[in-house]
Design a protein around this nucleic acid. Sequence first.
DNA 1: TAATATTCGGATAATTTTGTCCGAATTAAA
DNA 2: TTTAATTCGGACAAAATTATCCGAATATTA
Lengths: 144, 144
Amino acid sequence: MFSKACEYAIRATIHVAVQSNLEKRTSLKDIAKAIDSPEAFTAKILQQLSRNQIIDSVKGPNGGFMISAEKMSAIKLSQIINAIDGDAIYKGCGLGLKACSEVHPCPVHDKFKKIRNDLKAMLESTSVYELSIGLTGGLTFLKI
Amino acid sequence: MFSKACEYAIRATIHVAVQSNLEKRTSLKDIAKAIDSPEAFTAKILQQLSRNQIIDSVKGPNGGFMISAEKMSAIKLSQIINAIDGDAIYKGCGLGLKACSEVHPCPVHDKFKKIRNDLKAMLESTSVYELSIGLTGGLTFLKI
DNA sequence: TAATATTCGGATAATTTTGTCCGAATTAAA
DNA sequence: TTTAATTCGGACAAAATTATCCGAATATTA
Protein backbone atom coordinates (compact mmCIF):
# COMPACT_ATOMS: atom_id res chain seq x y z
CA MET A 1 0.00 0.00 0.00
CA PHE A 2 2.62 2.52 1.12
CA SER A 3 6.37 2.56 0.55
CA LYS A 4 8.65 1.44 3.37
CA ALA A 5 9.78 5.02 3.75
CA CYS A 6 6.18 6.06 4.27
CA GLU A 7 5.52 3.32 6.80
CA TYR A 8 8.57 4.42 8.78
CA ALA A 9 7.41 8.03 8.49
CA ILE A 10 4.02 7.28 10.00
CA ARG A 11 5.47 5.12 12.75
CA ALA A 12 8.11 7.73 13.55
CA THR A 13 5.63 10.57 13.66
CA ILE A 14 3.37 8.66 16.03
CA HIS A 15 6.31 7.90 18.31
CA VAL A 16 7.41 11.52 18.31
CA ALA A 17 3.83 12.49 19.19
CA VAL A 18 3.68 10.07 22.10
CA GLN A 19 6.93 11.45 23.51
CA SER A 20 5.83 15.03 22.88
CA ASN A 21 2.69 14.31 24.90
CA LEU A 22 5.06 13.47 27.77
CA GLU A 23 6.89 16.77 27.18
CA LYS A 24 9.91 14.87 25.89
CA ARG A 25 12.04 15.42 22.86
CA THR A 26 13.08 12.18 21.21
CA SER A 27 16.29 11.58 19.29
CA LEU A 28 16.91 9.71 16.05
CA LYS A 29 18.36 6.82 18.04
CA ASP A 30 15.33 6.59 20.31
CA ILE A 31 12.98 6.71 17.35
CA ALA A 32 14.78 4.05 15.34
CA LYS A 33 14.83 1.80 18.39
CA ALA A 34 11.19 2.44 19.23
CA ILE A 35 9.84 1.78 15.76
CA ASP A 36 12.43 -0.85 14.82
CA SER A 37 13.75 0.88 11.72
CA PRO A 38 17.22 1.36 10.19
CA GLU A 39 18.71 4.41 11.84
CA ALA A 40 20.39 6.13 8.89
CA PHE A 41 17.40 5.63 6.64
CA THR A 42 15.11 6.89 9.35
CA ALA A 43 17.27 10.01 9.61
CA LYS A 44 16.53 10.81 5.99
CA ILE A 45 12.84 10.37 6.54
CA LEU A 46 12.83 12.56 9.65
CA GLN A 47 14.57 15.24 7.61
CA GLN A 48 11.79 15.08 5.04
CA LEU A 49 9.14 15.29 7.73
CA SER A 50 10.94 18.22 9.28
CA ARG A 51 11.31 20.04 5.95
CA ASN A 52 7.60 19.51 5.38
CA GLN A 53 6.85 20.99 8.79
CA ILE A 54 5.22 17.82 10.00
CA ILE A 55 7.60 17.56 12.95
CA ASP A 56 10.11 20.02 14.41
CA SER A 57 13.78 19.35 14.99
CA VAL A 58 16.37 20.78 17.36
CA LYS A 59 20.09 20.25 16.92
CA GLY A 60 22.74 19.83 19.56
CA PRO A 61 22.83 18.03 22.91
CA ASN A 62 19.34 17.29 24.21
CA GLY A 63 18.15 18.00 20.73
CA GLY A 64 15.82 15.76 18.82
CA PHE A 65 12.37 15.75 17.35
CA MET A 66 9.01 16.87 18.62
CA ILE A 67 5.57 17.94 17.51
CA SER A 68 3.43 20.55 19.20
CA ALA A 69 0.00 19.73 20.60
CA GLU A 70 -1.66 21.96 18.03
CA LYS A 71 0.14 20.35 15.12
CA MET A 72 -0.50 16.89 16.45
CA SER A 73 -4.23 17.47 16.16
CA ALA A 74 -4.01 19.30 12.87
CA ILE A 75 -1.67 16.93 11.03
CA LYS A 76 -3.54 14.09 9.33
CA LEU A 77 -2.18 10.83 7.97
CA SER A 78 -2.77 12.15 4.47
CA GLN A 79 -0.20 14.89 4.98
CA ILE A 80 2.50 12.43 5.99
CA ILE A 81 1.73 10.20 3.04
CA ASN A 82 1.73 13.16 0.71
CA ALA A 83 5.09 14.36 1.99
CA ILE A 84 6.75 10.98 1.46
CA ASP A 85 4.91 9.09 -1.28
CA GLY A 86 3.15 11.90 -3.10
CA ASP A 87 -0.45 11.82 -4.22
CA ALA A 88 -0.42 8.71 -6.40
CA ILE A 89 -2.55 6.78 -3.94
CA TYR A 90 -5.29 9.39 -4.26
CA LYS A 91 -5.03 10.38 -7.87
CA GLY A 92 -3.45 7.37 -9.56
CA CYS A 93 -5.47 4.93 -11.63
CA GLY A 94 -5.75 1.41 -10.25
CA LEU A 95 -4.22 0.07 -13.46
CA GLY A 96 -1.58 2.79 -13.79
CA LEU A 97 -3.20 4.51 -16.76
CA LYS A 98 -2.33 8.17 -17.17
CA ALA A 99 -5.50 9.13 -18.98
CA CYS A 100 -7.96 7.33 -16.73
CA SER A 101 -10.71 9.63 -15.51
CA GLU A 102 -14.38 9.84 -14.74
CA VAL A 103 -15.24 10.42 -18.40
CA HIS A 104 -12.57 8.06 -19.73
CA PRO A 105 -12.50 5.29 -17.15
CA CYS A 106 -10.33 2.20 -17.10
CA PRO A 107 -12.08 -1.14 -16.62
CA VAL A 108 -11.69 -1.06 -12.83
CA HIS A 109 -12.30 2.67 -12.36
CA ASP A 110 -15.78 2.45 -10.85
CA LYS A 111 -14.90 -0.59 -8.77
CA PHE A 112 -12.00 1.28 -7.19
CA LYS A 113 -13.75 4.59 -6.79
CA LYS A 114 -15.58 3.82 -3.57
CA ILE A 115 -12.56 2.20 -1.99
CA ARG A 116 -10.25 5.00 -2.97
CA ASN A 117 -12.71 7.60 -1.67
CA ASP A 118 -13.11 5.76 1.64
CA LEU A 119 -9.34 5.52 1.96
CA LYS A 120 -8.94 9.20 1.18
CA ALA A 121 -11.59 10.19 3.69
CA MET A 122 -10.01 8.05 6.38
CA LEU A 123 -6.50 9.36 5.79
CA GLU A 124 -7.70 12.95 5.68
CA SER A 125 -9.64 12.64 8.91
CA THR A 126 -7.20 10.64 11.05
CA SER A 127 -4.95 12.84 13.15
CA VAL A 128 -1.54 12.02 14.53
CA TYR A 129 -2.92 12.92 17.93
CA GLU A 130 -5.62 10.29 18.03
CA LEU A 131 -3.15 7.63 16.92
CA SER A 132 -0.72 8.64 19.67
CA ILE A 133 -3.46 8.33 22.29
CA GLY A 134 -4.12 4.69 21.44
CA LEU A 135 -0.45 3.92 21.85
CA THR A 136 -0.12 5.76 25.13
CA GLY A 137 -3.21 3.97 26.44
CA GLY A 138 -1.67 0.59 25.60
CA LEU A 139 -4.44 -0.21 23.15
CA THR A 140 -2.14 -0.28 20.14
CA PHE A 141 1.49 -1.13 19.42
CA LEU A 142 4.28 0.07 17.18
CA LYS A 143 6.72 -2.80 17.61
CA ILE A 144 6.91 -6.56 18.20
CA MET B 1 -1.46 0.21 -4.82
CA PHE B 2 -0.21 -2.57 -7.07
CA SER B 3 3.19 -3.16 -8.63
CA LYS B 4 3.70 -2.22 -12.27
CA ALA B 5 3.94 -5.91 -13.08
CA CYS B 6 0.55 -6.44 -11.53
CA GLU B 7 -1.00 -3.52 -13.37
CA TYR B 8 0.30 -4.93 -16.66
CA ALA B 9 -0.99 -8.36 -15.66
CA ILE B 10 -4.52 -7.10 -15.11
CA ARG B 11 -4.51 -5.02 -18.28
CA ALA B 12 -3.11 -7.93 -20.30
CA THR B 13 -5.62 -10.42 -18.93
CA ILE B 14 -8.53 -8.13 -19.75
CA HIS B 15 -7.23 -7.64 -23.29
CA VAL B 16 -6.80 -11.38 -23.76
CA ALA B 17 -10.36 -11.84 -22.51
CA VAL B 18 -11.76 -9.29 -24.96
CA GLN B 19 -10.02 -11.04 -27.85
CA SER B 20 -11.07 -14.47 -26.60
CA ASN B 21 -14.67 -13.26 -26.61
CA LEU B 22 -14.15 -12.60 -30.33
CA GLU B 23 -12.76 -16.14 -30.71
CA LYS B 24 -9.32 -14.71 -31.36
CA ARG B 25 -5.97 -15.66 -29.95
CA THR B 26 -3.77 -12.66 -29.25
CA SER B 27 0.02 -12.58 -29.41
CA LEU B 28 2.54 -10.95 -27.11
CA LYS B 29 3.06 -8.20 -29.67
CA ASP B 30 -0.65 -7.47 -29.92
CA ILE B 31 -1.01 -7.40 -26.18
CA ALA B 32 1.93 -5.08 -25.57
CA LYS B 33 0.61 -2.74 -28.23
CA ALA B 34 -2.95 -2.85 -26.93
CA ILE B 35 -2.08 -2.17 -23.32
CA ASP B 36 0.93 0.06 -24.03
CA SER B 37 3.47 -1.97 -22.07
CA PRO B 38 7.12 -2.96 -22.66
CA GLU B 39 7.05 -6.10 -24.75
CA ALA B 40 9.79 -8.16 -23.14
CA PHE B 41 8.63 -7.37 -19.63
CA THR B 42 5.08 -8.20 -20.61
CA ALA B 43 6.32 -11.56 -21.89
CA LYS B 44 7.57 -12.42 -18.40
CA ILE B 45 4.25 -11.48 -16.89
CA LEU B 46 2.28 -13.50 -19.42
CA GLN B 47 4.46 -16.48 -18.56
CA GLN B 48 3.58 -16.06 -14.90
CA LEU B 49 -0.11 -15.80 -15.71
CA SER B 50 0.14 -18.89 -17.88
CA ARG B 51 2.02 -20.88 -15.22
CA ASN B 52 -0.67 -19.88 -12.74
CA GLN B 53 -3.35 -21.10 -15.15
CA ILE B 54 -4.94 -17.69 -15.39
CA ILE B 55 -4.53 -17.62 -19.16
CA ASP B 56 -3.58 -20.33 -21.66
CA SER B 57 -0.77 -20.13 -24.19
CA VAL B 58 -0.12 -21.79 -27.52
CA LYS B 59 3.27 -21.76 -29.23
CA GLY B 60 4.05 -21.55 -32.90
CA PRO B 61 2.56 -19.63 -35.80
CA ASN B 62 -0.92 -18.36 -35.01
CA GLY B 63 -0.11 -19.10 -31.42
CA GLY B 64 -0.70 -16.66 -28.62
CA PHE B 65 -2.74 -16.29 -25.50
CA MET B 66 -6.36 -16.89 -24.68
CA ILE B 67 -8.75 -17.55 -21.86
CA SER B 68 -11.79 -19.77 -22.01
CA ALA B 69 -15.28 -18.44 -21.34
CA GLU B 70 -15.56 -20.54 -18.21
CA LYS B 71 -12.26 -19.30 -16.81
CA MET B 72 -13.06 -15.73 -17.70
CA SER B 73 -16.05 -15.83 -15.40
CA ALA B 74 -14.32 -17.83 -12.70
CA ILE B 75 -11.08 -15.85 -12.51
CA LYS B 76 -11.33 -12.88 -10.18
CA LEU B 77 -9.02 -9.87 -9.90
CA SER B 78 -7.79 -11.25 -6.60
CA GLN B 79 -6.29 -14.29 -8.32
CA ILE B 80 -4.28 -12.17 -10.73
CA ILE B 81 -3.01 -9.99 -7.93
CA ASN B 82 -2.15 -13.01 -5.86
CA ALA B 83 -0.22 -14.60 -8.71
CA ILE B 84 1.90 -11.50 -9.30
CA ASP B 85 2.12 -9.51 -6.07
CA GLY B 86 1.29 -12.15 -3.48
CA ASP B 87 -1.08 -11.63 -0.59
CA ALA B 88 0.57 -8.65 1.12
CA ILE B 89 -2.27 -6.33 0.13
CA TYR B 90 -4.72 -8.54 2.01
CA LYS B 91 -2.66 -9.71 4.93
CA GLY B 92 -0.03 -7.02 5.39
CA CYS B 93 -0.25 -4.39 8.12
CA GLY B 94 -0.76 -0.82 6.95
CA LEU B 95 2.42 0.18 8.77
CA GLY B 96 4.41 -2.89 7.74
CA LEU B 97 4.46 -4.46 11.19
CA LYS B 98 4.93 -8.22 11.21
CA ALA B 99 3.15 -8.81 14.49
CA CYS B 100 0.14 -6.62 13.85
CA SER B 101 -3.11 -8.48 14.41
CA GLU B 102 -6.60 -8.19 15.76
CA VAL B 103 -5.43 -8.76 19.33
CA HIS B 104 -2.18 -6.82 18.89
CA PRO B 105 -3.14 -3.99 16.57
CA CYS B 106 -0.96 -1.22 15.23
CA PRO B 107 -2.23 2.34 15.62
CA VAL B 108 -3.96 2.34 12.24
CA HIS B 109 -5.22 -1.25 12.32
CA ASP B 110 -8.89 -0.52 12.95
CA LYS B 111 -8.89 2.44 10.60
CA PHE B 112 -7.59 0.27 7.78
CA LYS B 113 -9.71 -2.76 8.53
CA LYS B 114 -12.89 -1.64 6.80
CA ILE B 115 -11.04 -0.36 3.76
CA ARG B 116 -8.95 -3.48 3.43
CA ASN B 117 -12.05 -5.67 3.78
CA ASP B 118 -13.94 -3.68 1.17
CA LEU B 119 -10.96 -3.93 -1.17
CA LYS B 120 -10.70 -7.66 -0.59
CA ALA B 121 -14.41 -8.17 -1.21
CA MET B 122 -14.28 -6.16 -4.41
CA LEU B 123 -11.21 -7.95 -5.77
CA GLU B 124 -12.63 -11.36 -4.91
CA SER B 125 -15.96 -10.65 -6.56
CA THR B 126 -14.84 -8.89 -9.74
CA SER B 127 -14.41 -11.29 -12.66
CA VAL B 128 -12.22 -10.85 -15.70
CA TYR B 129 -15.34 -11.45 -17.78
CA GLU B 130 -17.27 -8.47 -16.48
CA LEU B 131 -14.27 -6.20 -17.00
CA SER B 132 -13.88 -7.41 -20.58
CA ILE B 133 -17.54 -6.63 -21.30
CA GLY B 134 -17.13 -2.98 -20.36
CA LEU B 135 -14.21 -2.67 -22.75
CA THR B 136 -15.97 -4.41 -25.60
CA GLY B 137 -18.98 -2.18 -25.08
CA GLY B 138 -16.81 0.92 -25.34
CA LEU B 139 -17.67 1.98 -21.82
CA THR B 140 -14.12 1.63 -20.55
CA PHE B 141 -10.60 1.95 -21.94
CA LEU B 142 -7.22 0.31 -21.55
CA LYS B 143 -5.05 2.85 -23.35
CA ILE B 144 -4.64 6.55 -24.08
C1' DT C 1 36.59 28.05 25.06
C1' DA C 2 36.61 23.11 24.48
C1' DA C 3 34.21 18.98 24.34
C1' DT C 4 30.21 16.59 23.17
C1' DA C 5 25.65 15.38 21.45
C1' DT C 6 22.89 15.96 18.18
C1' DT C 7 20.65 16.99 13.31
C1' DC C 8 21.87 18.00 8.33
C1' DG C 9 23.45 16.92 3.73
C1' DG C 10 25.96 14.65 0.27
C1' DA C 11 28.05 10.51 -1.54
C1' DT C 12 27.78 5.83 -1.96
C1' DA C 13 26.18 0.93 -1.65
C1' DA C 14 22.76 -2.93 -1.60
C1' DT C 15 18.50 -4.70 -2.90
C1' DT C 16 14.34 -4.93 -5.43
C1' DT C 17 11.71 -3.89 -9.29
C1' DT C 18 11.42 -3.00 -13.91
C1' DG C 19 13.01 -3.81 -18.28
C1' DT C 20 15.99 -6.00 -22.30
C1' DC C 21 18.33 -9.54 -25.12
C1' DC C 22 18.93 -13.72 -27.17
C1' DG C 23 18.89 -18.46 -28.11
C1' DA C 24 15.97 -22.78 -27.47
C1' DA C 25 11.69 -25.15 -27.99
C1' DT C 26 7.42 -25.72 -30.32
C1' DT C 27 4.23 -25.84 -33.96
C1' DA C 28 1.75 -24.37 -38.12
C1' DA C 29 2.03 -23.86 -42.91
C1' DA C 30 4.43 -23.71 -47.35
C1' DT D 1 11.03 -31.17 -44.67
C1' DT D 2 12.11 -26.54 -44.41
C1' DT D 3 10.78 -22.06 -42.96
C1' DA D 4 8.72 -18.92 -40.11
C1' DA D 5 6.04 -17.38 -36.16
C1' DT D 6 5.47 -17.78 -31.90
C1' DT D 7 6.14 -18.77 -26.60
C1' DC D 8 9.72 -20.15 -23.05
C1' DG D 9 13.68 -19.57 -20.10
C1' DG D 10 17.89 -17.81 -18.58
C1' DA D 11 21.17 -14.17 -18.32
C1' DC D 12 21.81 -9.57 -18.16
C1' DA D 13 20.99 -4.26 -17.59
C1' DA D 14 18.75 -0.07 -15.91
C1' DA D 15 16.18 2.38 -12.65
C1' DA D 16 14.04 2.99 -8.31
C1' DT D 17 13.91 2.12 -3.58
C1' DT D 18 16.03 1.10 0.59
C1' DA D 19 19.93 1.54 3.37
C1' DT D 20 24.71 3.05 5.03
C1' DC D 21 28.68 6.16 5.91
C1' DC D 22 30.88 10.21 7.07
C1' DG D 23 32.00 14.89 7.63
C1' DA D 24 29.77 19.54 8.44
C1' DA D 25 26.82 22.44 11.04
C1' DT D 26 24.71 23.57 15.33
C1' DA D 27 23.90 24.08 20.06
C1' DT D 28 24.44 22.61 24.99
C1' DT D 29 27.23 22.17 28.86
C1' DA D 30 31.37 21.79 31.46
